[in-house]
Design a protein around this nucleic acid. Structure first.
Lengths: 219, 219, 219, 219
DNA sequence: AATGAATGAGGATTCATTCAT
DNA sequence: AATGAATGAATCCTCATTCAT
């Protein structure tokens, strides 16, 4: 009773504990601030055990990124059967909720993204990869909702949509509860929608140039 | 005579060298990644000399933030005598240019902003302070351009304007030359302008709801 | 069926794999440089399996020494029925060949021999033992070829013969192909033979002291 | 009196203390067996101070090699004004004495020489370099004493002379006082001298080929 | 006959900082 | 106004070894 040390070797669970601890630490302190000793303390496993499960610190943090992204995706993903027309506002809400509930993924990712070290971290590369996947996903969604948009515009809008969302997340991280993330994301969704509509209109105009089309004023 | 007299020690210059080195290092590696040894190597001055000029590492990085912000402000500031009507587009251009030329300030600042360590860094506080000043500045500008906007809207718009700009900066940091920062900031300026106009219109409508009610100022 | 049945565990073969790996590693890096992890990697067996076959690292390396010596002896040994008169030149050739083909035994042994650690290694002791056996063997051979040599001379010559051979081996290890080991061992064999002959002559002279001493000119 | 800690920073002396400690440790345990912690303990300076004076462990051991060689050379070198004819026997004596008194240089060097690690140690390279210098020195001496020897023979003899000496040193390291190093080196000197004389004679014979010289059978 | 997992001790090296000069 | 030297704590990671299965 005094020490019912669970001596059952259980690889899966240990790995999970380590990732849990590392996720919290890394998302609060960044890569350099994440010491193996701290992860060891928080996970309850000796430092050497961390090295049984992960090649090195970089490998550990990359694994954190990947798992974190999975969790985050699941939280954001829209359940099957949803009415497509509700997708936009629904996704906006889900994103906000995910950022408030599990900010680990994005906080850590952005910290890594901002770094420039002589030799790339696998952890950073891992983040950029999942970010690229998100980019493709959103591009596709945009094209579905606004058929007729040219590639350049889709690119521009997607970049803007993602980047601004990053920025809003940071604002919330800095400002805490005084930042109304819901209102900001509402604004953001509308703003992107309007911009998409305007760009689409401009494209159409440009295409049917000599015709009698009337000017289309900014939304 | 036997020794080639080292030129008279020049405090100002040494300090400057150290700050120059620290600015580059810190903006590439963040706070934890900035080792005194590296700053020493890059500045050409011994580590102990850094401690003659700065109390500790935190003090050094805070000084970097402050000087960096000064430099950045000077690059962004609009020269006297400019036509106020050109201010918006001009400032947009200047901001883009400053972010491309001297990204140190914002890169370091955002890295610091994202961190959550048990004991606050003076360096982080310093960044948040200059950011607050920028917030006030932009709020004022917004109010000047869109008189009649209620305080909540100004707050929301300013937060959005700044945050999205942060996000665009990050996108550029990640994507490099493949990210067209000029186009993104053009879009951003327009989007904020439109949103401001719409919010203003909504406010006016709300205020003159049923009849000729007199203006009711918020706050 | 679901699992491709790992072929029946074969103790002998595993043990051999481990010894093979350890032999290479230890002869390249010495005792301290031989990590169980590296032997594990090179042998393809988990570290814990190494401890199933060997008590500890010292035990493993001692086993390497013993097996290695066996291999080496077999390579050097003169087949039965050989004409005794050809033994010397033949053995010289065989030794050279063995040192070129399987240098593991001697390389590792000499490394161990040179070490001086607070607590003796069984591995080192094992090497010194087989070396002693070799010493006796060569002493006997010498006595057979040069009957009449006093014990001191046999000792001296044997020590010289073995030691110089060690040194030549090292020279080859350092110099690689640029060192003509065949020529060196030819020289060595002749030199030892001459020295033995001279010592024998000196002994005979000394024994028949008061008699008509004949001048023995050096060289 | 209880703690008159010498707090006078004295770089030279500290460096010397570290080298002294490292020399002993490395020559007893080899490169891998030389832990910075042990050197720290034996030298009385903290491990971090060792890194003020030396870049890394490899740098430290290379410095040991170089200093050790200097010491050894000084012990072996023949004072000016010595009668050249006494040089050979004198040098033999001096070498024996140096090997008995300060065996550090050669013990460490041979251990390093025998190693084969994936990435070369600067320490090993340093040893091979000084060894090369010794080779040239001895070659020159040989040529002076035996003018007329062809280059191949000089090479062969020098290699043999050095290598056998290495082997004799090892024999003494293994056998301790029971190994009569003086007798062995006397034998070695004579053996090399005789071999040189014989080789020279053979060369002369070969050069005057067409003459009536009879075959010279092996001694 | 093995092995996945664990673990405390120790490995080299860097850290921020101080101190005497 | 500086700096060579020092230093204890911390860094990441590897070590030999054990244990439960």
């Amino acid at each position: 009773m005094s020490k019912p040390r669970k001596r059952r070797a259980n690889g899966e669970e240990s790995r999970r504990k380590i990732l849990d601890a590392a996720e919290v630490v890394a998302s609060e302190r960044g890569y350099d601030g994440t010491s193996i000793a701290l992860v060891s303390k928080k996970s309850g496993l000796p430092a050497s055990s961390i090295y049984w499960h992960f090649k090195d610190k970089d490998d550990l943090v990359a694994a954190v990124i990947e798992r974190s992204f999975g969790t985050w995706l699941a939280a954001v993903a829209i359940p099957d059967g949803d009415d497509p027309r509700e997708q936009v506002s629904e996704m906006s809400m889900r994103i906000v909720k995910s950022l408030l509930d599990t900010p680990h993924f994005l906080r850590l990712g952005l910290m890594l993204a901002l770094e420039r070290r002589p030799e790339e971290l696998r952890a950073r590369t891992a983040f950029l990869e999942v970010r690229d996947r998100a980019f493709e996903q959103i591009s596709t969604t945009l094209r579905d909702f606004m058929p007729g948009l040219d590639d350049g515009s889709v690119r521009l809008l997607t970049t803007y949509a993602i980047s601004a969302a990053d920025g809003l997340f940071i604002a919330r991280e800095i400002g805490g509860d005084s930042v109304d993330l819901v209102a900001l994301f509402d604004l953001h969704a509308r703003v992107v929608y309007d911009a998409a509509a305007r760009l689409k209109a401009e494209v159409r105009t440009r295409n049917s140039d000599s015709d009698t089309e009337t000017e289309i004023s900014t939304s």
